[in-house]
Amino acid sequence: MEPWYSVYWFRSVQWQQYHFAHPLALSLIPGILVLFFLRYYLSRNAQQQLNMSLGQLRYRRIGTDNLIDRWLSLLRYLLPVSVFMGMAMLLVALARPQIVRQQRDEQSEGIDIMLAIDVSESMNEGDLPPNRLAVARRVAQAFVNSRKNDRIGLVIFAGEAFSLCPLTTDYALLKQYLNDLNTRMIRTSGTAIGDALARCINRMRDPVNIQADTAQIEAGQTERSKLIILLSDGDNTAGNLDPVTAAKLARAFSMRLYTIAVGRASSVKAGTVDEGILKTIATIGSGSFYRATDARSLQRIFAQINRLEKAPVQVRVYEDIQDFYRVYLYWGISFLLGALLLKNTIFGNILED
């Protein structure tokens, strides 16, 4: 750092960095000029003068350079300028110039999310162009992009259910899995909603995660929230586990369940879309049921879930405050001491004291 007597402290670049704790003190600086003006106005007719004859001196200096005279004439203002600068610097010090550096630290424990996506043949229907699965894949990727500090996993299902991606914060890897989804990944026909829910539950109650959650609880932190987002055409035709039983298991493990029925009801044969089971398991799982009839409605559904399921964020703001009032206090004292010294020289008018 520069020494206090350096002119560095008067640079405009330095002053632009300052935050003044008491800016009202700066507004008093123009008042000093007002006091000087009042002093001059009130005492201009009462000034004492010592008349001297300078005829011979003027005669001797005729034709000589009057540069010294001009300098002496200007130097008589040195005393009032020193007083003004001293008082101004004291007011600047009173305003407490500071440089404040802020650092924001955002902490969020996040939540655990399992995406269960139907990849059965019925997801190739073109009522959501180009097809239901393509739209679901694209919207799910956008949903992943919108999350922060959350662990997200992926389960796919048709006649069977498979865990494609465990809970992870590697969103690039998860989006790659989503991009590769197609209806040929599972050869077994049908839609096993109950088995898909069971896979999601098992992933989120993994022993490793249980130990981690236990450690968090012991440290005084709350347990991570858990939710399942199941996206299907709603037809439960396969699997070993009843969806209602699976939903009750999810509720027992404090997992919320959101279900989304994809496709227009008019484009599917009567009796094949079982919205009732999706509504039922969503109610049991303390979540919500949605129907997506087009790409925009599916985007709105995921956006609504995104707003509802947010982990609390703790924001800590650290401030590094550096005070520089001492620099200007030293300058103010120096100017005032200089003014006292000038009082005892030819620049001070002893008759006015």
Rank of each mutant, 00 (worst) to 15 (best):
S297Q: 11
R307C: 02
F302Q: 00
F289R: 01
R291Y: 02
G287S: 10
Y318W: 06
D320V: 08
I321H: 06
L298Y: 11
K310A: 03
Q304P: 14
F289C: 09
I305T: 02
A295S: 15
Q314N: 15
R296S: 15
L298F: 10
G332T: 05
A311T: 14
E309H: 02
Y328H: 05
Y290I: 05
A292Y: 03
I321N: 00
S288M: 10
V315W: 04
Q304Y: 12
V315R: 09
N306H: 14
Y330H: 07
G287R: 00
S288F: 04
F289M: 11
Q314I: 10
T293I: 05
G287W: 00
L329F: 15
E319F: 12
L329Y: 10
R316P: 00
F302H: 00
D323A: 09
Q314L: 11
L298E: 12
E309F: 02
D294E: 08
G332L: 05
A311S: 12
Y290G: 01
V315Q: 07
S297N: 01
E309N: 01
D294H: 06
Y290N: 00
R291C: 07
K310D: 02
Y318I: 08
V327K: 02
R326A: 13
A292M: 08
N306R: 07
L298S: 08
Q322C: 01
Q314A: 06
R291G: 11
L298R: 03
Q304G: 11
S334M: 13
A295H: 02
Y325F: 12
I305D: 08
D323H: 14
L308W: 03
V327H: 10
Q299W: 13
V313Y: 06
V317K: 10
F302D: 04
G332H: 02
G287P: 04
I305Y: 11
Q322K: 09
E309I: 06
L298W: 06
S286M: 13
E319K: 14
F289I: 04
A295N: 06
K310M: 04
I301N: 10
L308N: 05
Y290L: 05
D323N: 13
L308T: 14
N306C: 13
I301V: 15
D320A: 08
Q299E: 15
Q322M: 03
R300P: 05
A292D: 00
W331C: 05
S286K: 12
E309K: 00
D294S: 04
G287M: 03
V317D: 04
Q314M: 08
T293K: 03
